[in-house]
């Protein structure tokens, strides 16, 4: 059987590709694994248990940062189950056209955090759905290191909204619980967001 990318590998690539851009992370293992591979990052927003909301939070951020030259992109890292819960967000993104938005769906096909029960994702073409909703670009990315690295690099330079769907495996490295006070997570991210120098043309 062909080896697929495991999620921690995908997250390490994501962190590297967008190390200076706001990244909104979906709940559960995604947050814990990102912490394991990248450590605590000021540009990462950890949405601890807010299932189904990651895309819409990122949409609000991308709209709010439209025209803000400190930030080129707003990256949303979403799971298949959580995306399906907030599925209406695909339509709203198509309607509002947030050009900075990059949605990366790490699709393991299951609700991994709750024991690996299957989601409905297997039969659903997320990229086609996004395109039908009017997204600028939507692609299925082959589940290997080089393809994902290349796609993330491309997404960084392309005009959004962009959806990338990557299939990932279900290996779960042992991670600690992440029990930080949400107020702190919110404050630290906002402090970084509104002060960051960014890499845009010129920070005003």
């Amino acid at each position: 059987m062909r080896r697929v990318l495991q999620r921690p590998e995908a997250l390490a690539l994501l962190d590297a590709a967008f190390s200076d851009q706001p990244v909104v992370l979906t709940l559960g293992g995604t947050i814990r694994e990102m912490l394991a591979v990248a450590g605590r990052k000021p540009n990462h927003l950890y949405s601890l248990d807010a299932m189904g909301q990651t895309l819409a939070i990122g949409l609000g951020l991308a709209l709010g940062l439209d025209g803000d030259r400190r930030h080129e992109k707003v990256v949303v890292v979403e799971g298949d189950g959580s995306l399906l819960m907030g599925f209406s967000g695909l339509a709203t993104v198509g309607h509002l056209q947030p050009t900075k938005l990059v949605l990366v769906v790490l699709d393991n096909g299951v609700y991994l955090a709750t024991g690996g029960q299957p989601t409905a994702a297997a039969g659903i073409d997320f990229a086609a759905t996004a395109r039908a909703c009017g997204w600028a670009e939507a692609r299925d990315v082959p589940s290997d290191f080089e393809s994902l690295r290349e796609s993330l690099g491309w997404a960084r330079g392309a005009q959004g909204p962009i959806l990338l769907r990557v299939k990932v495996g279900t290996e779960q490295p042992k991670t600690d619980y992440f029990l930080e006070d949400p107020v702190l997570l919110s404050r630290q991210f906002q402090d970084w967001l509104l002060r960051a120098e960014g890499t845009g043309a010129s920070a005003v």
Binding site: A56, L61, L63, G64, S88, T92, L96
Partner: peptide, 26 residues
């Protein structure tokens, strides 16, 4: 001013949250 429909109230709450993080009045 951007004025737009939201399909579900909970989605609106999440969008407002992102806007608040970005320091926007909404």
């Amino acid at each position: 001013r951007r004025v737009y429909p939201i399909p579900r109230e909970e989605e609106g709450i999440s969008i407002l949250s992102g806007l608040a993080l970005a320091g926007q009045r909404a």
